[in-house]
């Protein structure tokens, strides 16, 4: 039996709503508390996106690294292998597949961490 509703992302969403709509307006006169509340809301939005997209992200990272390294493994193992190959020169920095893989993974990470980031918007053609 699954864990009862609300789902994790729904719980987080409720706290985001509370902080944004109830708490934040009370804090306009206290710069530090107001600012830290904005940061807290932002953190919860990362958690929310991570809950919704995290599995998909890990699957994609595993897939992309597996294709690049022509092997299978856990994310830890694949990343460790890639790092070793970059450090010891086995991976040429000019390798287009390497560059595209790292770019794709970075885009997918920022999609969770901060999809409003300028470079993310530029590269996904969002204005």
């Amino acid at each position: 039996m699954p864990i009862n509703r609300p789902k994790d992302a729904e719980l987080v969403q409720s706290v985001i709503e509370y902080l944004s709509e109830t708490l934040k307006p009370q804090l306009v006169d206290n710069k530090a508390l107001y600012y830290n509340t904005l940061v807290a809301i932002n953190v919860l939005k990362i958690v929310e996106r991570s809950l919704l997209q995290g599995d998909e992200y890990s699957k994609r990272e595993t897939e992309l690294l597996g294709q690049l390294l022509k092997t299978e493994g856990t994310l830890d193992e694949l990343n460790e292998m890639l790092i070793a190959q970059i450090d010891n020169g086995e991976q040429s920095l000019e390798n287009k597949q390497l560059i595209e893989t790292l770019l794709d993974i970075s885009m997918a990470k920022v999609a969770i961490d901060n999809p409003k980031y300028s470079t993310y918007k530029k590269l996904s053609n969002i204005s």
Binding site: N36, V39, V43, L102, V110, D113, Y117, T119
Partner: peptide
Amino acid sequence: RSVERAAIGRRVSECELDIMDLIA
């Protein structure tokens, strides 16, 4: 300990993306 310092860790990916954008 602070939520601000915690949050900044998740800005590292912005730098990863900017590095690859500069390289590409």
